[in-house]
Design a protein around this nucleic acid. Sequence first.
DNA 1: ATGAAAGCGCTAACAC
DNA 2: GTGTTAGCGCTTTCAT
Lengths: 359, 359
Amino acid sequence: MRHAGKQLRRSSIHDVASRAGVSPATVSKVLQGVTTVKAENVQRVHDAVEALDYRLDPFAADLRRSRRRIIGAIVPELESEFFGSMVTALERLAEKRGYALVAATSRESEKREAELIERMHDWRVAGVVLAPVRSEKGSGTALLKRYGMTGVLVDRVMTDDTLDTVSVDNASASAEVARQLVEAGHAHVLLLGLSDESIAIHTRIDSFRKAASQLDPTMKVDVLLAGGDVTALRAALATYFGEHKPTAIYSLFLKGTLVALTEFRRRGWHCPNDISLVGFDDAEWMQVTYPSIAAVVQPIDKMAEQAVDMLFRRIDGLEEPAKAHLEPCKVVMRESVGRMRQHRIEGEETMADPRHHQR
Amino acid sequence: MRHAGKQLRRSSIHDVASRAGVSPATVSKVLQGVTTVKAENVQRVHDAVEALDYRLDPFAADLRRSRRRIIGAIVPELESEFFGSMVTALERLAEKRGYALVAATSRESEKREAELIERMHDWRVAGVVLAPVRSEKGSGTALLKRYGMTGVLVDRVMTDDTLDTVSVDNASASAEVARQLVEAGHAHVLLLGLSDESIAIHTRIDSFRKAASQLDPTMKVDVLLAGGDVTALRAALATYFGEHKPTAIYSLFLKGTLVALTEFRRRGWHCPNDISLVGFDDAEWMQVTYPSIAAVVQPIDKMAEQAVDMLFRRIDGLEEPAKAHLEPCKVVMRESVGRMRQHRIEGEETMADPRHHQR
DNA sequence: ATGAAAGCGCTAACAC
DNA sequence: GTGTTAGCGCTTTCAT
């Protein structure tokens, strides 16, 4: 173990070889744990490695092997804990299999997503986990196919695909939200989302509708889908509240929950007194605020596990039709959802009268 | 542009060369924009590239050049928006200079941090941006030096270092918090943190103390530093409240703010009526909750810019003593901080009586 | 203006 | 058991 300053050239396998008095090939064998090397030479190599502070260049090795021990991850963003946790989990799982994970953010841009896929292709990654920007119709999955890359899609459901996908059981989750809202006596619910092409979002909407109308045919379900960004949604919600007053909001995604809370603040409304709120996506802060915010929690680690499993099955050469894996969510009701008085026993359509106290 | 299935071998520079009827060397020149190539051949090469869907293997190129166009980022975690935003910013900045960023999480483990530094070393990255685990005394910076790697530390102040560092002006920020708290009439403040070795935290404490005692010599400042993890802090805070009742808490880090909020909930306390709260680190949710939470906001993008600037200056060969860069924070007061009645005019030491309303 | 040759650091046949 | 040889895909003198 030698202290090194700024080295001009790092020692290579040749240096180790000559110091150990063997050939580079032997060093390579020792380093890979091939057992057919004479014990004495194994020792000499190890000594040389130690003396020279030698470390193998994995890229050079991979180059020769024509097979990169890297898997790529492309996520829309890293600013919210969902994808942060996702990447962390993927990293751990990939490393467990001897691969390094390189993550990149598409920053919600389809163009950048495409560039990143090309970069991963150029890097000859063994596989890529792609969390597509917004729509799963995106060019991303097409590119993956076009390049013959092995990949799996996460956080989006399958469309037509020849690609394995891992996502959350949106239908069941939404149905469960509907069930709980109906049971709590809510008769008018607003679903809040962005009008992207995402099938996931539409599944959330449709299953909510279906479940709700089954459990309470009279329930009124509004859907507010703003095009574009969060600002548009904020404006749309403000307008909506000018004319309607649902007893609960079911936000279809995390930012929607924030938008709802913002608008509540602006109007001086409080959960659950004035309105109830439950959102898709959980976050750490949601349980410490007052009121705590009800949420559909996605099993991030499970999704990551599934994704990496499927990916490596493909990397290992499995040939079989693409599968769409669905992981179940948990719906965690918290203080932001109030119970309405006697569900419609006297045909009443009055406003909230939660049993929960505010303060 | 040809549609490819699973390719057995991607076309290499040789394939392009032979298709274009030139040598690989010429292709390489064309690809690098060397101007001394005959226009006709330039065209032929481009045509061949197009026809074969050729893409250069950057790792092979880097290998030959003995210089990897990669910079590494090592962060403690990606689950909170701070480091997520940091990595996103670093990625953008690195790419602007033609480098790819590979990020990895040390998961708050010094051991893993060391392993990651070694991996970056093995990868021959051009430089690394390291956000050290907890203590900046960590082995991380030592390893960086030992390997002669060029790197910069972020989010931690300089200790003894021969390494450039970029951090936040903790002293000014804390002094400003003290000023605002004193001005709001607070006379007893609890500082809440983890007892890691971090100089940053101690700076925050010391400057708060100093500023506070200057502005109001009678102010009582308690400091609660729990060893280990967040659970320990939660317990310590619960105990502390058994005996003391400050009028405000200044949380020294994000998780502390969550712990404080948790404990407030458990006790049924509300901000700012029962107690005020301001925390180091801002988050998106803090402005939409009720009450909104006051926070010291760190200029993440600025820090990233500084870090990348310094890093590349070193990569480009600059030799000069390491510098410690300090970026100023903004202190954003929000509803969680209340104003106490007439600051001690009649020697009163009564509890909160905020002018802000709760609901 | 171009190409042959050498080589970045490594691995894998295949002889010996 | 071990070394020789021949690359992986690229760049870069250096002749021509």
